Amino acid sequence: MFEYEIQKLHHNELIREAGNARQVRLAVKARRAARRAAAGRSGQDDHEGTVSALRSRFARAA
């Protein structure tokens, strides 16, 4: 009986973690959609990212 209870606790913990992960994914998706909508209203392509930050990290090619 003790092993069954441990298994049930583990099962419930996994379900709880999956629910938390799902909520995080939905929050990230909503935040990303809101950011894209705001960029669309302001005329900026914010979702494209910046290129200038990467240029300073690498040396120029020959």
Rank of each mutant, 00 (worst) to 15 (best):
M1P: 07
M1N: 06
M1S: 08
M1L: 07
F2P: 01
F2S: 08
F2A: 15
F2K: 12
F2I: 14
E3V: 06
E3A: 09
E3P: 02
E3Q: 01
Y4F: 11
Y4S: 14
Y4V: 15
Y4D: 13
E5A: 11
E5R: 13
E5T: 09
I6Y: 08
I6A: 09
I6W: 08
Q7M: 15
Q7R: 11
Q7F: 15
Q7G: 13
K8D: 00
K8Y: 11
L9V: 13
L9K: 04
L9Q: 00
H10S: 11
H10D: 11
H10M: 10
H10Q: 06
H11I: 05
H11Q: 11
H11F: 09
H11G: 04
N12F: 13
N12H: 14
N12W: 10
E13L: 06
E13K: 14
L14T: 15
L14K: 15
L14G: 10
L14H: 14
I15Q: 00
I15D: 02
R16K: 00
R16L: 04
R16G: 04
E17W: 11
A18T: 06
A18P: 08
A18C: 06
A18E: 12
G19F: 02
G19V: 07
N20F: 01
A21L: 15
A21W: 09
A21M: 13
R22C: 05
R22N: 11
Q23A: 05
Q23C: 07
Q23G: 09
Q23S: 09
Q23K: 08
V24K: 07
V24A: 15
R25K: 10
R25Y: 07
R25S: 04
R25T: 05
R25N: 09
R25M: 01
L26K: 09
L26Q: 14
L26F: 13
L26D: 05
A27Q: 01
K29R: 03
K29T: 11
K29H: 08
K29Q: 12
A30N: 03
A30W: 01
A30C: 08
R31Y: 06
R31H: 12
R31E: 14
R32A: 08
R32S: 10
A33Y: 05
A34R: 02
A34G: 06
A34W: 04
R35P: 05
R36E: 05
R36M: 06
A37N: 06
A38K: 11
A38E: 09
A38R: 12
A38W: 03
A39E: 00
A39N: 00
G40H: 01
G40Q: 05
R41Q: 09
R41E: 08
R41I: 08
R41L: 10
S42F: 02
S42K: 00
Q44T: 14
Q44E: 15
D45A: 05
D46H: 07
H47I: 13
H47E: 03
E48A: 12
E48D: 09
G49Q: 03
G49V: 05
T50I: 04
T50L: 02
T50P: 02
T50D: 00
V51F: 12
S52F: 10
A53P: 01
A53M: 04
A53T: 04
L54S: 01
L54P: 02
L54Q: 07
L54N: 03
R55F: 03
S56Y: 04
R57C: 11
R57M: 13
R57E: 11
F58K: 10
F58H: 10
A59Q: 04
A59T: 04
A59I: 14
R60H: 00
R60C: 07
A61F: 07
A61N: 13
A62C: 08
